[in-house]
Design a protein around this nucleic acid. Structure first.
Lengths: 219, 219
DNA sequence: GCAATTATCCGACGAGCGTTGGATTAACCC
DNA sequence: GGGTTAATCCAACGCTCGTCGGATAATTGC
C-alpha cells in the first residue's frame, strides 16, 4: 500500500461514548426535539441534556444554533433522498413496460413512500415545519427539498408520457399527490389516530386518487 | 323602557383609538404574528409594538401570554364556525332533494369553504399550527375545533344516508376531505404558488375526489 | 518524562424574555 | 370642585437564553 490510511485514533481526550461520535448523538437528540417542538421552543441546554453532554459541547460540535438546525436537516434529508431515489428508480424502470405496468408501479411507489414516512416520524415532523415556516427554511429548501420535488415531478411526467395517466399535463396530478402526502405528513407529525388505521386509510385514499387519474380499465 | 341600557361611556382614561377597542387591536396584531411565526417565536413586546401600545397594556387586556394565545383562537374560530355552519345548513337542506341535488350541494360546500380559507390566511395559518403542536392546543381543540369536525362528519353521514355517496360509512370520505383541506391550508399558510392558480387546482382536486365517491352518474 | 492535541465542561457575559407594582392621565358621577 | 374608575405607560424584577473564553482531563507522539 502506498500510504497507511488506516483509521487510527487521533490524539486528544476520548469521547464519552466511544461507540458513537458525539456529534451524531447530539444531532439525533436535537432532531427529535426540533421535530417535536420547533426551533424556537427548543433551547440548546435542552438539547445538551437530552444528549447527556454540556451546552458548550453542543456548540463545540455544531457551532451556532442555526447551524445545528441546518445539520439536523442535512442528516434527515440525506436518508430520505436515498430511499426515495431508489423507489423512484424502480418505478421508472417498470414504467417502460406499458400503461398497465406503469399503474402498478405508481401504486407500488405510493406504498413504499407511506412505509418510509411511517418508519421515520422525525422526518415527517421536520418536513412539516419546513412547510410551515418557509422564511426560515428557504435556503434549506433549495439544497435539500427541491431535488425531491423534482424527482416526483419528473416521475409523473414520465408516467404521463408513457400514457399511464389521463392528464395530458400532470401538473394537477403532482399538486394533488403533494397535497395528499402533505396532509398525511401533518397527521403523522401530530400523532392523530391509530397508526395502523391511519396508514390503511391513507393508502386507500392515495390509490383512489391514482385510480381517478387513469383512463378506463385496461384489458 | 324598564332600564336604560344605552351604550354610555364608562369612566376612566379614554382609549388611544376610540373607533376600535384596544383589546381588539391587540388581538388582531397578535393573531397575525402568531399565525406567521408561532407561539414561541413571538414576544409580547413585538405584539405591543405591532398594536402601537405598551407591553403592560397588552397584559392588562389579555392577561398572560398563554391567555392571549387562547383569546386569538377563540376570536378566529368564532368567525370560522359561523361561516361553516351557515354553509353546512344550506348543504343539508339541499340534501333532501335527492342524490343529484346532494351532489351539487356538496360541490357547493367545497366552493364556499375554499373561498373562506382564501379570504382568511391568518385562520388557515393558526389552524395549521394547531395541527402541528397538539400538546399545546389540546384544550383549544376540545372547545373550538371538535364542533367543526363534527359538523363535517355529520353532514357526510347525512349525505351517505341520502344515498348521495358510494361509501356505506363515510369515514374514509371524511378523512380524505380533511386531508385534502389540510394540505391546502398548509399550502396557503406557506404562501406556495400563485393564489389564483392554487385555488383553481385545489377546487379541481376536491371535485375530482368527490366525483370518485359518487356512484354512476344519475339520470 | 514532556509537548501537542482534542474533548469536555465550568462560569460568566449581555441580551431578551414574561410578568408585576405603581405612577399618571383622563374620563365619569356627585 | 372632589372622588371614583379605567386605560395607559414606565421601570424594574427575576429568569432563561445563546455564546464564548478558558480551565481540565485524557490520549498520542516524542
Amino acid at each position: 500500500m502506498a500510504a497507511m490510511t488506516m483509521p487510527r485514533r487521533r490524539p486528544g481526550r476520548p469521547r464519552r461514548d466511544e461507540s458513537r461520535p458525539t456529534r451524531e448523538v447530539v444531532l439525533a437528540a436535537a432532531t427529535a426535539l426540533f421535530a417535536r417542538h420547533g426551533f424556537d421552543a427548543v433551547s440548546l441546554r435542552e438539547v445538551a441534556a437530552a444528549a447527556g453532554v454540556d451546552v458548550a459541547t453542543v456548540s463545540h460540535h455544531t457551532g451556532t444554533k442555526a447551524q445545528l438546525y441546518d445539520a439536523c436537516f442535512a442528516r434527515v434529508f440525506a436518508a430520505e433522498r436515498a430511499a426515495l431515489e431508489a423507489a423512484a428508480g424502480r418505478a421508472r424502470a417498470a414504467l417502460e413496460a406499458g400503461p398497465a405496468a406503469a399503474r402498478a408501479a405508481l401504486h407500488d411507489l405510493v406504498d413504499v413512500f407511506v412505509d418510509f414516512l411511517e418508519d421515520r416520524p422525525e422526518t415527517t415532523a421536520l418536513w412539516l415545519r419546513r412547510w410551515l415556516e418557509p422564511q426560515r427554511h428557504a435556503e434549506l429548501d433549495q439544497r435539500y427539498a427541491a431535488p425531491l420535488y423534482r424527482l416526483v415531478a419528473d416521475l409523473l411526467d414520465a408516467a404521463a408520457a408513457a400514457g399511464a395517466l389521463v392528464e395530458p399535463t400532470p401538473y394537477v396530478t403532482v399538486r394533488s399527490l403533494v397535497w395528499a402526502v402533505h396532509g398525511h405528513v401533518v397527521a403523522l407529525a401530530a400523532g392523530v389516530g391509530s397508526p395502523a388505521r391511519q396508514r390503511r386509510e391513507f393508502r386507500a385514499f392515495l390509490h383512489r386518487l391514482l385510480d381517478g387519474l387513469y383512463g378506463p380499465a385496461g384489458p
